[in-house]
Amino acid sequence: MDEADFTDFVTHRAAALLRTAYLLCGGDRGAAQDLLQDVLERAYPRWRRIKGRPEPYLRAALANAAANRWRNRSRRVSEVPLIDEAPPARPGPEQQVVEEDRVVRALRTLPPRMRAVLVLRFFDDMAEAEIAKALRCSTGTVKSQTSRGLARLRELLDDDLPAPVHERTTT
């Protein structure tokens, strides 16, 4: 176990991973921090077994842990209002903040796996094949979840998100 290497990684990359976790948890900062801590603690005993870059590995672990976490605890998660605040009439810095908040709130209402697909795809810029591997599903599932997720976001935001353009695959 190279403890110094692990500590160094956490020190330098925890913020980036926390941001992913924050979106995976639908904007719940406390839950995101718990989730990240949980995943990193689990990774610690296995650290020396991770060859190559640990960050993609941990992002995948975060996405899976988030999905399972919400699955297991869903009965205790209270309903969250979809969009409970009307945006200001004119665009501006305040409008921008409200829009960002609305996106996170909208994400929160999505099923966890669909949310994970959108976060990995549009926040972490992962390819569909990478997401499929991370979430242990087919690329077809990733495509359909992306499509449905964006449609749902569009509904929630009453906006005009365009239909997604999928990557070309050989399978």
């Binding site: 692990f6 926390l18 801590q37 603690e41 610690y44």
Partner: peptide, 16 residues
């Protein structure tokens, strides 16, 4: 968004 101060130490203790 940043982790709280001492986060790495907390993780390390939990990992151990």
């Amino acid at each position: 968004l940043e982790p709280p101060p001492g986060f790495a130490d907390t993780v390390l203790r939990g990992g151990r």
